[in-house]
């Protein structure tokens, strides 16, 4: 078994999802048969970071044309590496970048990527979700040549043994011609931050009638600030003018789909539920255990929001430190 794990760098470090992908690769081969691959124009630091783990070796795929990322550049470079290394499997973290080039890279080897894998069993048999998570599918590699696999973020908990001795680091310089790179990517930028844009907010703390008075709003604002979340509200709050109308979530306001929707003192009228049902994780804090919001929530705390919210603000602050 020769497994290549392609690691990605985020904010100067190898990303958590890359470590998770490397951990998943342990289901395919022991650590010494796994080669960690870092790729870019300058790979010295991530290579050193990878070498701290007990991989068989670390390969630095380095070329000036590999920054910024382009699918053309990555495909050309990694295809050459694969031809040289002849791996049995190539493992990626399932990121937006991998989704952009890995299918083409696999195609170049006459293969199809098994993407967004959540489980690897003996065989190896790869499990991925179908039908929006309603079913699981078990996949097996059937072709000749390397098997390409990308691993869903969070599906494996990153646990890799540290290197006892120095992990060998090799440098691979691919042959890339500037004319091969057909796309011109611009600098990443933040989406419009000046106006309230609940629709694209990732974290939302939303407040309802349970807050009782406009004077109590800072309590919830503090929690939102601690979470780095946008503050939103149900209709009665905006009707009362306690928060501007553009912060209203629901059928007559905005539809939102954040990763976390924290509903404080919202009982859950249908007009509100239709606006936030697409949220990835819903948390409800309400003193009424029969409040309909608990029907749609993933986590619920039945209690007085005036006690729970400050406690939660403190807990979030502590966790973020």
């Amino acid at each position: 078994m020769r497994v290549l794990v392609i690691l990605e760098e985020r904010g100067g470090h190898i990303s958590r999802t890359s470590w998770e992908a490397a951990t998943a690769a342990l289901r395919l081969a022991p650590m010494q048969e796994i080669t960690a691959v870092v790729i870019g124009a300058q790979t010295e630091l991530p290579a050193a970071e990878a070498a701290a783990k007990a991989f068989g070796k670390v390969i630095r795929v380095e070329h000036p044309l590999l920054a910024p990322y382009t699918s053309d550049g990555y495909c050309a470079a990694l295809h050459q590496l694969i031809q040289q290394e002849g791996p049995t499997q190539v493992v990626f973290p399932h990121t937006y970048q991998v989704r952009d080039y890995a299918p083409a890279l696999a195609c170049r080897s006459g293969q199809a990527l098994i993407g967004d894998v959540i489980e690897i069993a003996d065989g190896p048999v790869f499990t991925r979700q179908l039908m929006q998570g309603r079913l699981n599918g078990s996949y097996r590699h059937a072709g000749n040549g390397p098997c390409f696999v990308s691993v869903q973020a969070g599906a494996f908990r990153a646990e890799l043994p540290d290197a006892a001795a120095a992990t060998p680091i090799e440098t691979f310089t691919p042959a890339i011609d500037a004319a091969q790179i057909r796309t011109r990517p611009g600098e990443p930028f933040r989406g419009s931050a000046q106006t309230v844009d609940l629709g694209s907010a990732q974290w939302i703390v939303s407040v309802g009638r349970g807050i009782r008075e406009a004077e109590n709003l800072p309590l919830v604002q503090e929690l939102a600030t601690a979470l780095g979340a946008e503050l939103a509200a149900s209709r009665p709050i905006c009707d009362n003018g306690w928060l501007p109308m553009e912060r209203q979530v629901g059928s007559s306001g905005q539809s939102v789909a954040p990763r976390l929707y924290l509903a404080v003192g919202i009982s859950g009228a249908i007009q509100h539920l239709v606006g936030m049902k697409g949220s990835q994780c819903i948390v409800a804090i309400n003193k009424d255990p029969d409040a309909p919001i608990f029907e749609v929530a993933d986590y619920g705390i039945v209690g007085d929001l005036f006690e729970v919210v400050p406690a939660l603000t403190e807990a979030v602050k502590a966790a973020k430190q």
């Binding site: 859950g268 009228a269 249908i270 539920l273 309909p292 029907e295």
Partner: peptide, 9 residues
């Protein structure tokens, strides 16, 4: 729709 999805319904 209301009886099937709306908490009040």
């Amino acid at each position: 729709c209301m009886g099937g999805y709306d908490p009040k319904g």
